Amino acid sequence: MRQLLQCGRFSFRLEQRPLVMGILNVTPDSFSDGGRYGALEFAVSHAEQMVRDGVDLIDIGGESTRPGAPAVGLEEELRRVMPALYALQGLGSALSVDTCKPAVMREAIIAGADMINDINGFRAPGAIEAVQGSDCGLCVMHMQGTPQDMQAQPAYTDVVAEVIAFLRERITALTRAGIERERICVDPGLGFGKTVEQNYALLRATGRLREELGLPVLIGMSRKSMIGAVTGRPVEERLSGSIAGALAAFAHGAKIVRVHDVAETVDALKVWRAATIDQTPQ
């Protein structure tokens, strides 16, 4: 499995250490921190703190994808995302934009986005065309249904095999369009059209995804209901569970984790690596 991820201005050597992607929601209704960073000055301040805490990528999202969230129009998503993307250009961290709209992808790439993170797996008409002429990284995620209905009745015969088959098909579509594999990572989409049991089955199968697809795997389970289902904790009390999930993802072979709590995750990763990989703490 290759150990390089090319993301615009950044080339990440993944054999050195896993990456931490920090979540920056510039939305009023995200499930965990909706509204907290909607004002540009608060978004910039939070991003600056994430950089100080050791973040590798900052993922900017202008449309909530929590279960049941209403869709956001193109102009509104651009109004939320673009000022933050422009304001964060000089921070020294790779910048990702979390969107499934081709028009937002195009504008984000023009503005200097280093990655496009698409929960819809670049299936929208024009999505592949929007990214193929760039050098940005691409995160291809699996989702059954849409955010509006995905948790109604998730159904699979074999969730791991079906997610792998979907991701393989999307990778083929991207590479046939001339997109280099070095730009692509995959995300099984924990919480996006899966039951709690299916989420944990996919988490345990991270190594299988990596081996069968030959690409880096990103895991996003920070503060999600799959943690609450195990711990009984509400969303604001899921820090410990989120860190445990991140370390489990790394242990199973993930190369990137997407998290709300950057400082705590980075520190936990440093200790975990020192304890398990026989390296001198940095």
Rank of each mutant, 00 (worst) to 15 (best):
P102H: 01
L215I: 01
E182S: 14
Y37W: 13
R181T: 06
P70S: 12
G73Y: 01
V81G: 10
G178E: 04
S45D: 14
L138V: 00
L138Q: 04
S93D: 05
M143L: 12
S45V: 03
M150G: 08
D53K: 03
L269Q: 09
A124V: 11
L19P: 00
R273C: 09
G220K: 02
A113F: 09
R238N: 01
L190F: 14
S30E: 02
P216M: 00
S45R: 15
T146L: 08
S240M: 08
G62N: 12
G90I: 02
L24D: 04
I58D: 10
Q148L: 14
R80V: 05
M50R: 12
T27G: 09
T146A: 08
A165E: 07
G133R: 07
V271R: 09
E169W: 00
D267G: 02
E212Y: 05
D59G: 07
G35I: 04
M21V: 12
G90L: 11
I179H: 03
A246E: 03
A152V: 15
K255Q: 15
P102G: 08
P102N: 08
P18H: 04
A229S: 15
R233Q: 14
E75G: 15
R66D: 03
E237P: 01
R80M: 05
V20Q: 05
M141G: 04
A263S: 13
G137A: 12
D29Y: 03
G112H: 04
H46R: 15
S242Y: 00
E180K: 09
D59T: 06
R168P: 06
E15R: 13
G68Q: 11
G133F: 07
V257W: 09
E169A: 13
E237C: 05
G61V: 15
E236V: 09
L218V: 12
A251I: 02
Q89V: 00
L57N: 07
V230Y: 09
V271Q: 09
G34P: 03
I179D: 05
V163L: 10
G232K: 13
Q89R: 15
S240W: 06
A127E: 09
P234Y: 02
V20K: 02
L209F: 15
R273F: 03
S45F: 07
N199Y: 03
A165T: 09
L202G: 00
E75Y: 05
T175M: 10
L57M: 13
R176D: 14
R36P: 00
G145M: 12
L190R: 03
M105G: 13
I219M: 14
A274G: 15
V44Y: 02
S30R: 02
G8Q: 03
R52K: 14
G189T: 02
E15Q: 11
P281M: 13
R106K: 13
I171K: 10
Q89W: 01
T99E: 06
M141Y: 06
G178F: 09
R80I: 01
V97Q: 00
R181N: 00
E237I: 04
Q144R: 12
G232M: 12
L203H: 00
D187F: 08
G191C: 09
S222C: 10
A69T: 01
I219A: 11
I243P: 01
S64R: 07
Q49P: 13
I109K: 02
K224F: 10
P281T: 14
A130H: 03
M21F: 04
L215T: 02
T195N: 05
